[in-house]
Design a protein around this nucleic acid. Structure first.
Length: 472
DNA sequence: ATGTAC
């Protein structure tokens, strides 16, 4: 892979057939993936072959190897010019994302009640593989209401307050969900999981604001130094996974009929405007709403525990996905175009002044929530004016080791004890789960965020440190 | 990420 260093934060993969556009990797030299162990830069080049792709196939500083598309990949296709949508450009965990809540409480004031808080959160948070959820749905009609209404429906049903919706991407739900495109098997897998954390890198953490880089923006977000926060990182569980599986298969079957050839069958895709493209986008939107409702329900459960243990309240800072495709209007070569923007392990980062921001956030830009690896810090960023890559930035630390490698590396260690020795309390979590999520298996999130800022993708607002973690 | 292989 020939990389041309354009700046210390930006590398180019020159276009060569059958690429339609170049690749652009936002990273520092030390953050670039190890080409012997990780094929993600080849994947950046593969994505550049997709029909209708415009400008470049982008990678964020946390890029690593994924299914078809790299994780940390951003690609936009022109809807009116045969542009495709690819389920691999969203990933299996559709609308996996992060929600941050800020307490009216300082870290020092929480003091010894942290243990009781974590005990309560551990009990109130369904987690791990399989079934178990905050919400037991009445019937398929109620699941369809979740798929159509996302966090809006959860709030209607009393799981939150209307103000929450102003602090959710898309006001808590996208309008174009089509439950008819969600298979019966996906429904069966998802029905018993609405309001559950899952496993892997998903978590609920009690955190504290350790550092504020921009006081006015942090204040607009509702954040101040020392403040206690709760961060929830989860997705669309079995429902999103099944939707991805179903629609990849459907697209594999019809691609030859559209004359589409891709260098990797995991890049299965169909024109956005085709029946198969629209069917996927309708099902994907349903999973996006499901994931938002999921985070809304877990936040509701966390609020009840927080109120009981501390007497305090949790205000929503923001809820944002980092695995999603969206139809957005962007300027391409001086003209506005309707684009299908795939963000897979990449976060939308709207700049100040953007119409889609609520009034109180419009002057400062969109909060971007970056979960660190287990036991390390997390970051709050904001979007910036004139950023490349369709108003997108990184989503997290990014793996450097596979789950298998990480499990092997942890032999002889006791991850739980090591975390607790750092003063980070742990609730739940299998030994295997902890092993797979060791910080040694990830890039340094601080370096990732610094590179994203250096590349002009976003700006740092605050750093959060973990006090305790609930894991699957 | 995921009923860690239909």
């Amino acid at each position: 892979m020939d990389l041309v260093e354009e700046t210390p934060y930006r590398f180019r993969i020159d276009r060569r057939d059958p690429m339609r556009v170049p690749g652009v990797v936002f990273a520092t030299r030390s953050l670039l993936p190890d080409v012997d162990a990780d094929r993600s830069l080849d994947q950046v080049a593969d994505v550049a072959t997709l029909p209708g792709i415009v400008t470049a196939s982008y990678a964020m500083p946390d890029v690593h190897w994924g299914y078809g598309f790299p994780i940390g990949g951003v690609a936009a296709t022109d809807v009116a010019d045969g542009g495709v949508v690819s389920p691999g450009g969203v990933g299996f965990d559709i609308s996996c994302g992060v929600r941050l809540l800020a307490a009216d409480l300082d870290r020092a004031a929480l003091g010894p009640r942290l243990d009781a808080l974590l005990d309560g959160l551990g009990e109130a948070t369904p987690r791990g593989m399989g079934t178990g959820a905050v919400w037991h749905l009445a019937d398929r009609a109620e699941l369809d209401a979740v798929l159509r209404g996302g966090s809006r429906y959860a709030v209607e049903r009393g799981f939150g307050v209307p103000r929450d919706l102003a602090r959710c991407e898309d006001g808590g739900a996208v309008d174009d969900a089509d439950p008819a495109q969600v298979s019966e098997r996906a429904v069966q897998r998802g029905a018993g999981q609405v309001g559950s954390l899952g496993s892997g890198n998903h978590f609920l953490e009690v955190q504290a604001v350790a550092e504020v880089y921009d006081e006015p923006v942090a204040a607009a977000f509702g954040l101040a130094a020392g403040q206690v926060c709760v961060m929830i990182h989860c997705g669309s569980r079995g429902l999103g996974h099944q939707i991805c599986t179903d629609h990849v298969r459907a697209m594999e079957r019809v691609m030859p009929g559209y004359g589409i050839q891709v260098p990797d069958r995991q890049l299965a895709c169909a024109p956005v405007s085709s029946p198969e493209g629209r069917a996927y986008l309708g099902a994907m939107a349903a999973a996006a709403n499901y994931a938002r409702a999921n985070r809304q329900l877990l936040a509701h459960a966390a609020r009840q525990v927080f109120r009981r243990v501390t007497g305090g309240e949790l205000a929503l800072v923001y809820d944002i996905s980092h695995n999603l495709a969206k139809i957005e209007t962007h300027d391409v070569a001086g003209a506005p175009r309707r684009l299908c923007v795939h963000r897979k392990g990449a976060t939308r980062a709207l700049p100040p002044g953007h119409d889609d921001l609520p009034d109180d956030l419009r002057p400062v830009g969109q909060p971007v929530l970056i979960p660190g690896s287990m036991g390390t810090g997390s970051y709050v960023l904001t979007g910036v004016t004139g950023a490349p890559a369709w108003a997108s930035t990184c989503h997290g630390a990014g793996r450097t080791q596979s789950r298998k490698q990480a499990t092997k590396a942890v032999r002889g260690h006791d991850p739980r004890q090591e975390l607790e020795a750092q003063g980070i309390a742990v609730r739940g979590a299998s030994r295997r789960g902890l092993a797979e999520e060791m910080p040694a298996a990830y890039k340094d999130v601080t370096a990732v965020v610094a590179a994203a800022e250096g590349a002009g993708l976003c700006r740092r607002v605050a750093r959060l440190v973990p006090l305790g973690v609930v894991k699957g």
